[in-house]
C-alpha cells in the first residue's frame, strides 16, 4: 500500500476516570508499544480538559475502542470525532495570569490563606505571579502567590 505524507488523522476523545488522565496517556502509549499495529500518532492530555484524553490516530473509532479495552482507567470513546482546529487552543496554554488585572478581587484557592478573599495589587506576567492584599486584614500585607492559585471573583469595573 502506498502511504502518503498527508494522511488524514482523526482525533477522538476518550473518557477517563477523574485525575487519571496522565495514567491513561501512559497506558495508551504502553498498549501501542505492545501492539504496534494500532496507528496512533499522538496522545494528548491538556490540563484544562479534565476527565478526557485526546487520541490522534489514523484508525477508525472501532479500533480505538479496541485499544482502550486494555488500558486501566480509560472508560469509553466519545462518539464522533473532533478536529485539529478544535483542539489546537489546548496546545498553546494561556498564561495563568490572563484575565487578572490590578484591582481584581480574587479568592485564594491554595496555600495557607486558602479561602481568603484578596485584592490584586501587582501582576508579574513573566513569573506568572500576582501580589495580593487580603481583603479582611487590618494592616495591608502584600502576599505573592502563583497565578493559578487564585480564582477571580470580581473584575471590578466591567
Amino acid at each position: 500500500m502506498h502511504m502518503t505524507e498527508e494522511t488524514e488523522t482523526h482525533i477522538f476523545a476518550v473518557k477517563t476516570t477523574a485525575k487519571q488522565e496522565r495514567a491513561v496517556v501512559d497506558g495508551i502509549y504502553h498498549a501501542i508499544t505492545v501492539d504496534p499495529s494500532f496507528k496512533v500518532t499522538a496522545v494528548l492530555s491538556p490540563d484544562e480538559l479534565k476527565g478526557y484524553v485526546l487520541v490522534e490516530t489514523l484508525e477508525p473509532v472501532a479500533r480505538i475502542e479496541e485499544l482502550i479495552e486494555s488500558v486501566p482507567s480509560a472508560r469509553t470513546v466519545v462518539p464522533g470525532e473532533t478536529s485539529l482546529a478544535e483542539v489546537s487552543h489546548y496546545l498553546v496554554p494561556k498564561p495563568a495570569v490572563a484575565g487578572i488585572d490590578e484591582g481584581t478581587i480574587v479568592e485564594l484557592i491554595a496555600g495557607p490563606f486558602k479561602g481568603e478573599k484578596a485584592i490584586v495589587k501587582r501582576i508579574d506576567t513573566s513569573k506568572e505571579e500576582i501580589t495580593v492584599e487580603l481583603y479582611e486584614s487590618m494592616v495591608p500585607i502584600p502576599i505573592t502567590v502563583r497565578g493559578d492559585n487564585v480564582r477571580v471573583i470580581d473584575r471590578g469595573e466591567t
Partner: peptide, 27 residues
C-alpha cells in the same frame, strides 16, 4: 499538560507544536 508523540510525521498535533521527534512532552 501531557503529550505523547508517537509518529511525528503523520501527526497534525506534532506539526502544530513543531515537534519532529517522538517522545513525551509537557505543554
Amino acid at each position: 499538560g501531557y503529550l505523547i508523540v508517537i509518529d511525528p510525521r503523520h501527526s497534525g498535533i506534532a506539526k502544530q507544536m513543531n515537534i519532529d521527534m517522538p517522545g513525551r512532552y509537557a505543554l
